[in-house]
């Protein structure tokens, strides 16, 4: 298992290098300009000066190599500095956002908690709702519950969050006036009232996102359960005199979870990547919103760094999913 993991990690190094090059080239080929929001009446000399200060006019390979150096050497070193109070990176140029002129990683670190909280919580809530729905739907296949569950799952999968989000705002914020439409990032939870306030502002984005998780995971679980419910070992379990709870929750569910856990693990990078649309609608200042504003502002270092981090996360979680599969299913061995 360990050998396998190490081998996979080694293979992923060239993959990630290639990805970084592709991301860099795509961003360079993409049209757009970080200075396009300045007033048109600004003299071109001033613009040229600002471009030079951003380093846009450097040769491409210099920009790429500089970014590689910053990402793989300076940023980790800086992290080391922060952790251990050393000063290796003093005076070295970290990856700087073109928009804010602040270090990209500082901004990401600022954004990550909100995304983890909102998107992560949505994922957990979605799973907690999906599991019972999936189990009951499969166990009582074609029952009224299953039919309603199927219908709602299809609805959840089919309705995009830019629709359901706005609908939720209209219902819960505009007409009922129960929940705020804007996520207050600066809310500090230190009392019951602020805790409740935090819950209120998270309610809508979490529910909108959870609906989608619920819809897809419950469908996966249902079909996986159905596959297993008709297996002989389930009959064996019944013949052994096991109660239905044991049969379904121990025998069927545990086997059905093998593919579902993989799907769940593969979905985990999205918790870090955030939810671009939903975060935008509810003004949750997460990674997704950061990415989209950076794209709008043509903030190449920010977009590039984020995209590459996503690539790393996806590669890592693919590996984790594979390893999980091995742990969960004794029939699979990585040697």
């Amino acid at each position: 298992m360990l050998n396998y993991a190490i081998r996979r990690l080694l293979i992923s190094v060239p993959t990630l290098c290639l990805i970084s090059l592709v991301i860099f080239s795509l961003l360079k080929m993409a049209p757009g300009d970080p200075l396009s929001q300045l007033p048109p009446s600004l003299p071109p000399e001033v613009r040229a000066n600002m471009r030079a200060a951003l380093g846009i006019d450097e040769p491409l390979f210099v920009q790429y190599l500089l970014w590689l150096k910053q990402f793989f050497v300076i940023e980790p070193l800086h992290g080391f500095d922060v952790l251990f109070g050393t000063h290796f990176t003093d005076g070295m140029q970290r990856i700087i956002s073109w928009q804010s002129r602040g270090p990209v990683f500082r901004i990401i670190a600022e954004r990550l908690p909100q995304t983890l909280l909102v998107v992560g919580l949505a994922y957990i809530v979605g799973l907690l709702i999906a599991l019972p729905i999936g189990i009951v739907s499969a166990y009582k296949q074609y029952s009224v519950f299953d039919q309603i569950g199927t219908f709602l799952s299809m609805l959840g999968l089919a309705v995009p969050s830019f629709f359901s989000g706005v609908l939720a705002i209209l219902i819960f914020a505009v007409y009922l006036d129960w929940l705020p439409t804007i996520y207050n990032t600066n809310l500090i939870v230190n009392s019951w009232s602020s805790f409740i306030e935090q819950l209120r502002q998270m309610a809508m984005p979490v529910m909108v996102l959870a609906v989608q998780t619920t819809a897809s995971i419950s469908r996966y679980l249902r079909s996986s359960m159905l596959d297993n419910l008709n297996q002989d070992y389930v009959r064996t379990a019944r013949a052994k005199g096991m109660g239905e709870n044991v049969v379904v929750l121990i025998h069927v569910l545990r086997n059905s979870m093998i593919p579902v856990v993989t799907v769940i693990a593969l979905g985990l990078p999205s918790i870090f990547a955030g939810a671009i649309v939903t975060e935008q609608i509810f003004k949750v200042n997460g990674i997704g919103e950061l990415l989209i504003t950076a794209i709008y502002a043509n903030d190449v270092p920010m977009v590039q760094t984020l995209a590459f981090i996503f690539a790393v996360l996806i590669v890592v979680f693919n590996l984790i999913a594979d390893l999980f599969y091995g742990l969960l299913d004794p029939r699979i061995r990585y040697d």
Binding site: R235, T236, H251, N255
Partner: peptide, 15 residues
């Protein structure tokens, strides 16, 4: 009352 099944692979819980 017990049963012995036809497919010895499928009747044993793989996990």
């Amino acid at each position: 009352m017990q049963m012995i099944f036809q497919d010895p692979q499928a009747c044993l819980n793989p996990r």
